[in-house]
Simulated assay, not measured.
Amino acid sequence: MAAGETMTARGRGRPPRLSCDQIVGAAVALLEREPDVTLTIKRVAEAAGSAPMALYRYFPDRDALLQAMADRVMTDLQPSRPAGDTWQEQVGAWMRTARERLRPYSQLLPYMAATRQPVGLPALARLATILRPLGLDEDDLALAVILIGSTTLSHALYETRRRPAEETVAGLTEALALRPQTEREAVGPLLPGFPSAYARLYDTVIEHAIAAIESLAAG
């Protein structure tokens, strides 16, 4: 070091101090690169180029880190105006688009449901704008908005946690062979239709959500 130069705050060989935003950004990028990786403090620290103990200065535990990640993802998923001429088409488009954008973040979905931050407000505002022309009173409009949001989030979580349809059918077929005849007769004929039913399920969920809102508007 030349005369007159000063030492930086960081000691020689010590990794640079990271900000909370940098850590969360590195963790989200890790999850996007490797959706199936189990997020741990150690793995996030490695992705951020830091030591695990350094992360505890910002996050007391793994849950706090995942909550911050969920808030970041929800902030970045700003909704655009859904396609469609009718409110029904726009709600359907919103629910399909939201599900597809949420699915890569399966580990964060429970934390998205638990967030207390205002990160979900743009999505709620978009839904309220779509539905307000229906003339619902404020209580029913609130119910309709929450119905759409919670249905979309819960189904995204369900889809990321359930086994593939073929594995489900194979497992049920094997298990059914050991069950009473009444169960075999009741469930056996249904199993070949399960893959198709899973493929049709979300469209049916959307139809029922729209029908519920139509009922509120009619009432």
Rank of each mutant, 00 (worst) to 15 (best):
I23F: 05
I23W: 07
I23L: 14
I23H: 04
I23D: 07
I23C: 04
V24Y: 02
V24P: 08
V24S: 01
G25T: 10
G25C: 04
G25P: 00
G25F: 09
G25S: 07
A26C: 00
A26V: 00
A27V: 00
A27S: 10
A27Q: 06
A27C: 09
A27F: 02
A27T: 03
V28M: 08
V28T: 01
V28F: 00
A29V: 01
A29C: 02
A29R: 15
A29D: 12
A29W: 10
A29P: 12
L30W: 11
L30V: 02
L31G: 04
L31A: 08
L31W: 01
L31E: 03
L31Y: 06
L31R: 06
L31M: 15
E32L: 05
E32V: 07
E32R: 14
E32H: 10
R33S: 15
R33P: 11
R33M: 12
E34V: 06
E34H: 12
E34S: 13
E34A: 12
P35V: 03
P35Y: 03
P35I: 00
P35L: 02
P35H: 00
P35C: 05
D36S: 14
D36L: 08
D36E: 15
D36Q: 13
D36P: 06
D36H: 09
V37P: 04
V37H: 05
V37C: 12
V37T: 11
V37A: 13
T38N: 12
T38G: 07
T38V: 12
T38D: 08
T38P: 05
T38R: 14
T38H: 10
T38L: 12
T38M: 13
L39C: 00
L39A: 01
L39G: 01
T40A: 01
T40Y: 05
T40S: 04
T40I: 03
I41P: 04
I41N: 10
K42D: 14
K42S: 13
R43G: 13
R43H: 08
R43K: 11
R43F: 02
R43Y: 06
V44T: 06
V44W: 01
A45N: 09
A45S: 11
A45Y: 03
A45Q: 04
E46G: 10
E46W: 11
E46K: 11
E46D: 13
E46V: 10
E46M: 05
E46A: 15
A47R: 06
A47G: 05
A47S: 15
A47V: 04
A47C: 09
A47N: 09
A48K: 07
A48Q: 00
A48R: 01
A48H: 08
A48F: 11
A48I: 02
A48V: 02
A48Y: 11
G49K: 04
G49R: 07
G49S: 00
S50G: 13
S50C: 14
S50L: 06
S50T: 15
S50F: 01
A51H: 12
A51N: 15
A51V: 15
P52S: 09
P52D: 12
P52K: 07
P52T: 11
P52C: 11
M53S: 15
M53F: 14
M53D: 10
A54P: 05
A54Y: 06
A54E: 15
A54K: 03
A54V: 14
A54W: 04
L55S: 00
L55F: 07
L55D: 04
L55K: 01
